[in-house]
Nucleic acid binder design. Structure first.
Length: 104
DNA sequence: TACTTGACAGCAT
DNA sequence: AATGCTGCCAAGT
């Protein structure tokens, strides 16, 4: 097997899919929950590889600073922010989400 | 095949 | 607060 850990991507998607609407998780949290503690980067790659028509709520994943980790001004960025606001997620003055509102 | 990048995070300086 | 280094691992060059 070329891939030593087959299915981890799927594992990651499963974790992301389990995030309740109106709530967000950080890459680190997702990684940890997927059994990949400290491999937050892997989460980023897994999400990046998602098809445009995916039903995975990738927009509920932000970085540890409570910010959207995508180039500001990009389509993905605005899409993510729009969806989060639509779910009731509050953004701070500097486009920052106060993660404390979720208990972390 | 080797080196560099990257939807990150945590700790040290 | 800002910068730099390290860990982790896949994908790109």
């Amino acid at each position: 097997m070329a891939d030593p850990e087959p299915g981890f991507n799927q594992r990651i998607w499963q974790v992301v899919a389990a995030i309740p609407a109106g709530k967000v998780a950080t890459y680190g949290q997702v990684a940890e929950k997927a059994g990949l503690a400290r491999a937050a980067r892997r989460v980023g790659h897994a999400l990046r590889g998602l098809p445009s028509n995916t039903r995975i709520p990738w927009h509920r994943v932000v970085n540890a600073q409570g910010r959207i980790s995508l180039p500001e001004g990009s389509d993905s960025h605005s899409t993510q922010r729009d969806r989060l606001e639509q779910e009731g997620v509050l953004f701070g003055t500097r486009g920052r989400i106060d993660l404390r509102q979720f208990g972390w």
